[in-house]
Amino acid sequence: MNHWSGYLLLIAKGAQMTVELTVLGIALALVAAFVAGLARVSRFSAVRALAIAYIEFFRGTSVFVQLFWAYFVLPMAGFDVTPLQAGVLALGLNVGAYAAEVVRGAVQAVSGDQRQACVALNLSRYQAMRHVILPQALPLMIPTFGNNAIELLKGTAVVSLISLGDMTFQAQVVRSQTGNTLIPFTTILALYFVMSWLITFGMRRLERRVSFGLDGMRR
């Protein structure tokens, strides 16, 4: 038992790194999603074009390639990044590209009557977006945002390719040192499931909270 306690502690440290990657990656993904998603509905064609270029590039290329590009190519261009920073950049920008389309779709799903009411009240585009459209669009985004967050969590396993000590990397270390596959990989399987469940639980509570009182506004 003492023999395995040290290895399980190693996996626990990997879990801490996975949580850090997930939290930072989600934060970056949310920023990228709202910036690119709102840019997609901009009046300016140049802004829309930039947003489309970002979305299509990161959705159309492999996260593995993006990770290696961030870790190995950016330093060649003069941008030194740590393995953690490279992982956050690749995961956050990749998932943010998918989430940007969620933002765009939710904003465009708000009924035309609401937009006409904003015009009748002489609200600026910024005021209409902030006070009318986004409060109604946000509950539509949250379920898919939850799925995106879980995908990002599971995607953190790719950082083991650049020797960042996440759960998958530490499980591989334990396997190589003990020759046992069952215990380390069953452990991280359970940890991934628990983390995913916590994200789902949190998103459901957030969805109920932001949806409160909006039924009357939508009518």
Rank of each mutant, 00 (worst) to 15 (best):
N2C: 09
H3K: 12
S5I: 13
G6N: 13
L8G: 08
I11N: 00
G14Q: 07
A15Y: 06
Q16S: 09
E20V: 14
L21S: 05
T22F: 05
V23N: 02
G25P: 08
G25M: 05
A29H: 06
L30E: 02
V31N: 04
V31Q: 04
A32E: 07
A39N: 02
A39W: 07
V41W: 06
V41H: 02
V41I: 13
S45W: 14
A46Y: 08
R48N: 10
L50H: 04
A51R: 08
A53C: 04
Y54W: 09
Y54T: 06
I55F: 05
E56W: 09
F57S: 05
F57G: 11
F58G: 00
G60K: 00
S62R: 05
F64N: 07
F64T: 10
V65K: 10
Q66T: 00
A70C: 13
Y71K: 00
Y71R: 04
Y71C: 01
Y71H: 09
F72E: 10
L74E: 08
A77F: 14
G78K: 09
D80K: 15
V81G: 04
V81S: 03
T82R: 12
L84F: 14
Q85D: 07
A86R: 00
G87S: 09
V88N: 04
L89R: 00
A90V: 00
L91D: 01
N94E: 07
G96F: 03
A97F: 10
Y98A: 00
Y98R: 03
A99R: 01
E101G: 02
E101Y: 05
V102Y: 01
V103H: 08
V107T: 01
V107R: 03
Q108I: 08
S111I: 06
S111F: 13
G112M: 08
G112L: 12
R115F: 06
R115V: 01
Q116W: 01
A117D: 07
A117P: 10
L121Y: 10
Y126W: 15
Q127H: 15
M129Y: 04
H131E: 15
V132D: 04
I133P: 01
P135A: 09
Q136W: 00
Q136G: 03
I142C: 00
I142M: 05
P143I: 01
F145M: 07
G146W: 08
L152Q: 02
V159C: 07
I162V: 11
L164F: 15
G165D: 12
G165C: 09
G165L: 11
M167R: 07
T168E: 05
A171C: 07
Q172C: 00
Q172E: 11
V174G: 03
Q177D: 12
Q177H: 13
P184R: 10
T187E: 06
T187V: 11
I188N: 07
A190Q: 02
A190H: 09
V194Y: 08
V194R: 12
V194K: 11
W197I: 13
I199N: 02
I199F: 08
T200Q: 15
F201P: 02
G202R: 11
M203Q: 11
R205T: 11
L206M: 11
L206D: 03
L206Q: 02
E207Y: 10
F212K: 15
F212M: 12
F212Y: 14
G213C: 08
D215R: 13
